[in-house]
Design a protein around this nucleic acid. Structure first.
Length: 344
DNA sequence: AAGGCGGGGCG
DNA sequence: CGCCCAGCCTT
């Protein structure tokens, strides 16, 4: 870590360099000496990246060393019994990683070599978008930016982006940023530098902004929002809502009401009235009950049947024939309720 | 779109 | 001691 990173004069000089150049200069000046950074052998890079899925570097190192002692080549791994591979993985967790790795090794040997483009790498078992980009860039020098938890954190802060990281739109935006910032000559080093920054400086809580190589252009730091990023919205479990609707028939006609034109959802749709909307209701009985989930509300709908004395129909309602329901918008709850009655 | 996989770190 | 953790595959 350069000792002058906080100096104003240096920060001014930093601004003349691209983001990638500043990041790489910092990376080159002293990154962690991890064993998989001493090779460009695709097999070894692959093994390391699989081990690093959901696993910190410190935990993976001893396993990495021992695994490669036992299976020094892709041929050795492909020819090993699965039980022996699992034994070498024992304690690392997520054992499908080991099974997929061995199966992938067999495929590589069968095809006579390691795939050398993103899509072919991605097609190996256990390799998803992150690992494919990591292997492609680190082992083959291909220009594909990785997006893992570390990179997401760095990008959300550098661009001060408050988007929910679970949202596909946010992921696309972050991937686009990573691809744009990617160093075209040293994509592998750039990717590792992004992850190194996230792992050692741009920490989840209390990031070390004072020693960050890109602090002079970090928008979150300028706005003071670095501790609130990245934004990850909790998954909201559907809220349970009780609802009671009533079917009032008069011959072929069914009484429906229309939703407000400015309702938040299903504006202008026709639906059955709620039980409480028809005070004059007589001869009520329960038809049945069903569940209906809209966005994050889980409705438990109880369907009633009843009758209205002549002249007691609430204003704003309308008697409609079921044949007409194909021509006007009807809410799904109403369709389900009428279906419930029809089946009885 | 959601759930399962496993171990470690953290409050 | 719960709670969290963003990679991949399956349903």
């Amino acid at each position: 870590m350069p000792g002058w990173a906080t100096g104003e004069r240096q920060a001014t000089e930093d601004d003349d360099l691209s983001y990638a150049a500043r990041l790489l200069a910092w990376f080159d000046a002293g990154h962690r000496d991890l064993p998989w950074r001493r090779t460009r052998d695709p097999y070894r890079i692959w093994v390391s990246e699989i081990m690093l899925q959901q696993t910190r570097a410190a935990a993976a190192i001893p396993y990495y060393e021992e695994f490669l002692r036992r299976f020094p080549t892709v041929e050795a791994l492909a020819g090993a019994p699965e039980a022996e591979v699992l034994a070498a993985w024992s304690g690392l967790g997520y054992y499908s990683r080991a099974r997929n790795l061995r199966a992938g090794a067999a495929l590589v040997v069968e095809r006579g070599g390691f795939p050398s483009d993103l899509e072919a790498i991605r097609a190996l078992p256990g390799i998803g978008p992150y690992t494919a980009a990591a292997v492609a860039s680190i082992a083959f020098g291909l220009p594909h930016a990785v997006l893992d938890g570390n990179v997401i954190r760095v990008i959300s802060r550098v661009s001060n982006d408050p988007g929910d990281i679970r949202a596909p739109a946010t992921r696309k935006r972050f991937q686009a940023a990573a691809d744009e910032w990617l160093h075209r000559v040293r994509p592998g080093a750039f990717n590792q530098a992004m992850m190194e920054l996230g792992a050692t400086v741009c920490l989840p809580r209390a990031p070390l902004c004072l020693v960050c190589p890109v602090n002079s252009t970090c928008e979150a730091r300028m706005a003071g929002t670095q501790n609130q990023l990245p934004v990850k919205l909790g998954k909201v479990k559907p809220e349970a809502v009780e609802s009671r609707v009533v079917i009032v028939r008069r011959g072929q006609w069914i009484f429906l009401r229309q939703r407000d034109a400015d309702a938040r959802r299903m504006a202008g749709f026709w639906e059955l009235p709620g039980l409480e909307d028809i005070p004059a209701l007589i001869d009520t009985s329960v038809v049945g009950n069903f569940q209906h989930t809209i966005v994050n509300q889980c409705y438990s709908v109880t369907v009633y049947r009843g009758a209205m004395p002549r002249g007691s129909a609430p204003a704003g309602g309308k008697w409609m024939k079921p044949e007409l329901f194909t021509d006007v918008p009807i809410t799904t709850v109403t369709r389900k309720a009428l279906e419930l009655l029809r089946k009885r």
